[in-house]
């Protein structure tokens, strides 16, 4: 039984560390986001392997996305995604009204400029999880008012 506080603190340190080593130019900022995203990717891959080892095969893409919204999110963030939307052409929007990693930060527009770095790791997490389930994707996140945020998943068609 492990508590979630260690993960939250560790996640904060991760961001601190990645950002402390660099100056604040736009290019550098992008590189930092990529670094965090890549770390999340690796963690997502590992987690999904452990999580799905006793499960039956998924029917289709939508089934996979539902799994991410329900079981995966519950495991990582102790709640489900609040809203899942799709255009049925490979774009999914996952909305979390009270995202864990932002909820201690602010409830409004204060610190909004810092929000992206708190989301990069999770974007990677989702992309890594999907990748292990055979779905290639690009995951981005956007916040207009904390602590709610939207993750957009764009499925890359395999050619």
């Amino acid at each position: 039984m492990a508590d979630e506080a260690p993960f939250q603190f560790l996640h904060n340190e991760l961001i601190q560390y990645i950002y402390s080593s660099a100056d604040n130019t736009a290019a550098e900022n992008g590189r930092n986001i990529t670094k965090l995203e890549n770390m999340g990717f690796r963690v997502g891959q590992g987690l999904i392997e452990r999580l799905t080892k006793d499960m039956s095969r998924f029917k289709d893409e939508l089934d996979v996305m539902k799994f991410i919204c329900k079981d995966f999110w519950t495991c990582v963030f102790k709640k489900q995604i609040d809203n899942l939307r799709t255009n049925h052409q490979g774009i999914y929007v996952l909305q979390d009204n009270k995202f864990r990693l932002l909820s201690n930060l602010s409830a409004g527009k204060q610190y909004l400029e810092h929000a992206p770095k708190y989301l990069a790791f999770t974007c990677g997490l989702v992309r890594g999880a999907l990748c292990s389930l055979g779905v290639k994707s690009i995951v981005t996140a956007e916040v207009s008012v904390m602590p709610s945020c939207k993750f957009q998943v764009m499925i890359q068609k395999m050619s």
Partner: peptide, 9 residues
């Protein structure tokens, strides 16, 4: 799972 999340991170 949550402890594994921590371990992996």
């Amino acid at each position: 799972m949550n402890s594994e999340l921590f371990t992996l991170t």
